[in-house]
């Protein structure tokens, strides 16, 4: 999956050293070193909030929150990040079962994939993101490597909050692919159906139906920083120093490097 991510960066023309990945999933140091981005292992669910700080302090950064607890602990940050249209490329690893605490239900879990089954309805993440104002929504399984890389590339060049949901079995998939995992990801893949441009309202995951994957929505909307500059420029006029203009040289963190 990280390889796919790297491919996405390449396709987007983004250099890894401009990229910051705040994540509540623990990565392997070797992977981070290999691909050369900056990685921040955050407190659970706060990758978007942490990423908001990174982005606002240095708007030149490409911030890609990788989250596992997106919809549980971090649900509110996702909702508000989408509403603000903060420039973040959010990658949500939807593993259905949080493998490290086997069988523990998280809010995006669907009944069929839980060892003891659960009765709770899962979130329809692309629909939620879209209704809250996210400008790009897509879902792929980890085996849709080409499509996923394309989506990542596209999202990285969009101005605003993008949400890419990846169906993948467990956060440590990319470090130790066990047979179970490989079987499961194959199961997701085999049971998926590509429906690009599908209305996100129709893409909820249910045990009875195929998993709808694809690039669902892509729209334009003023980003947080653009809206901020427009509004404060209007009110304050000359007294206002536009924020983050000229490749972020005027961000709170000062010039890069």
């Amino acid at each position: 999956m990280i390889t796919t991510f790297a491919k996405g960066l390449e396709k987007a023309g983004v250099k890894p050293n401009q990229v910051c990945v705040p994540s509540d999933i623990l990565f392997e140091p070797a992977i981070v070193k290999h691909f050369g981005f900056d990685y921040f292992h955050t407190t659970r669910g706060r990758a978007i909030a942490f990423g908001t700080g990174l982005k606002l302090a240095n708007p030149a950064l490409k911030v890609v929150p990788f989250t596992g607890d997106l919809m549980t602990v971090g649900g509110n940050h996702f909702v508000h990040g989408s509403r603000r249209n903060m420039e973040l490329t959010v990658i949500c690893i939807n593993n259905f079962v949080y493998r490290k605490i086997a069988g523990k239900a998280v809010s995006i879990e669907t009944p069929k994939f839980s060892p003891y089954s659960t009765f709770e309805e899962p979130f329809n993440i692309p629909h939620l993101g879209n209704s809250c104002g996210a400008i790009y929504t897509a879902r792929w399984t980890a085996l849709h490597t080409e499509e996923l890389a394309d989506s990542i590339a596209e999202a990285l060049n969009k101005k605003g909050l993008s949400i890419i949901e990846i169906l993948a079995p467990g956060p440590d998939y990319y470090t130790s692919i066990s047979n179970v995992n490989a079987d499961l990801v194959r199961f997701y893949y085999d049971n998926s159906e590509i429906r690009n441009d599908e209305d996100p309202r129709n893409v909820g995951i249910t045990p009875e139906n195929k998993i709808i994957v694809g690039k669902f929505t892509s729209k334009e909307r003023s980003t947080f920083i653009d809206s901020y500059n427009a509004q404060l420029g209007n009110v304050l006029g000359e007294k206002f120093t536009p924020y983050g203009i000229e490749s972020g040289k005027k961000g709170a963190g000062g010039k890069n490097g």
Binding site: F40, T42, T43, F50, G53, L54, A57, G251, G253, G254
Partner: peptide
């Protein structure tokens, strides 16, 4: 979110 954002911003140099 507030405190998470400021920790992020501090690492971005602010």
């Amino acid at each position: 979110a507030s405190i998470s954002a400021i920790v992020g911003a501090a690492w971005a140099g602010a």
